[in-house]
Design a protein around this nucleic acid. Structure first.
Lengths: 152, 152
DNA sequence: ATAAATCCTATAATATTAATATACTTTTCA
DNA sequence: TGAAAAGTATATTAATATTATAGGATTTAT
């Protein structure tokens, strides 16, 4: 049940872009900045952002003064969307995946206990990831910072 | 967020042993039987059951007439226990793991949004896996079979 | 004693992950 | 107009994890 580095880096980068969006109109940020701030290998992050761009979650601008920015307001991008682009289906086992269903080997899916529980697990995860937007998350971060008396 | 084959096979085998426990006092079953019934490579299953045995979840008897059986009643073994033996920590990221905590690279864990959500995900998964016993599962299977009018 | 079963370790084959490398294209601004 | 800044795109490598197979050692009932 693990989030890959690819997924982790991508989510951190998206959160970072969401924070940037609060401060400037588009929130355009360069790979290098994010890589440095989040301690991510720049070349690896490059691939990740490219994938997110091809999935339509971020836009980019080339050349001097360019960079990446969210394709939509932060409250319209969910963690589930980002996760799926980078780490694939959320379901712990294919036979309960909505996105990428495949039969498993069990004699009868309808009566398979393992499938029932894994379906519950899938629903629980999806319920969180698809109902948490980047905006929800940055707000939550701010609240905790505030409650801890931090200034930034 | 994936269940490995190892984990899948192990869980299926444990469910199978739980069913067997309903029919005979110990429910002793041979690797070969389970492998055949569940379509699992026998030699792979052997390793898996050995791991479960070393973790104290099943007992075994060597020699003719031997086999495996649950170390405890099916309602005292949770899916979470089995999962952790075979697939390791449940947490999607180490920094929210109770079993195997490790710091991630973020500047401040207390205010890290990613960590907060992944903590929620972890709790949701743990809530299911640690509160579902093998007995819960076999009962649920039976109920569905009954409601479908199946005899076995 | 022997056949049937688990025990135990090694290793092969494959797949995935993480990262790096290289070359190219587009844009901007001096 | 051309050099530098930035993203685009793909290939390659290195490390690790997964899945599975092989083969002998040990135990036990008959």
């Amino acid at each position: 049940m693990r989030l890959s580095k690819r997924g982790e880096y991508g989510l951190r980068a998206m959160i970072s872009l969401a924070e940037a969006q609060k401060n400037s109109p588009t929130g355009m940020t360069q790979i290098r900045e994010i890589a440095q701030k989040e301690q991510i290998p720049a070349k690896f992050l490059e691939q990740i952002l490219l994938a997110l761009k091809n999935a339509g979650l971020v836009h980019s601008k080339m050349g001097i003064g360019g960079g990446y920015y969210l394709a939509k307001p932060a409250d319209e991008i969910t963690l589930g969307q980002v996760f799926r682009v980078l780490d694939g289906p959320v379901a712990p086992i294919r036979c309960v995946s909505q996105m990428a269903y495949e039969p498993c080997g069990c004699p009868d899916e309808a009566t398979c206990g393992l499938r029932m529980v894994m379906g519950d697990v899938r629903n629980a995860i999806v319920g969180i990831l698809d109902n948490t937007s980047l905006a929800n998350l940055t707000r939550r971060q701010s609240e905790v910072r505030k409650s801890l008396g931090l200034t930034n």
